[in-house]
């Protein structure tokens, strides 16, 4: 199924969780934050948050800044 992650279209398998998406993107070891359909997830919720067709996710991390 198609979802949108960080403004880009992405293919994931049906019934994926956010945790699976994070691992698929190889971000398992990064300190990240995820917004799922405008709702910010606590890190503990990644495993139970299920992704559906057409969902929109934002995944952010820390970068250099002032």
């Amino acid at each position: 199924m198609k979802i949108t992650v960080n403004g880009k279209s992405l293919e994931v398998s049906a019934n994926s969780t956010v945790q699976q998406l994070v691992e698929q993107l190889d971000l398992g070891h990064e300190r990240i934050a995820v917004e799922h359909n405008q709702h910010i997830l606590e890190p503990g919720d990644f495993a139970t948050a299920t992704i559906e067709e057409g969902d929109t996710l934002e995944i952010v991390r820390f970068v250099g800044g002032g």
Partner: peptide, 18 residues
């Protein structure tokens, strides 16, 4: 130390600041 918050780049793998 200050840091910024940005989208993870899905196209190109970037080194982790942390």
């Amino acid at each position: 130390v200050t840091v910024a918050v940005r989208r993870v780049n899905l196209e190109a793998r970037e080194e982790s600041l942390l």
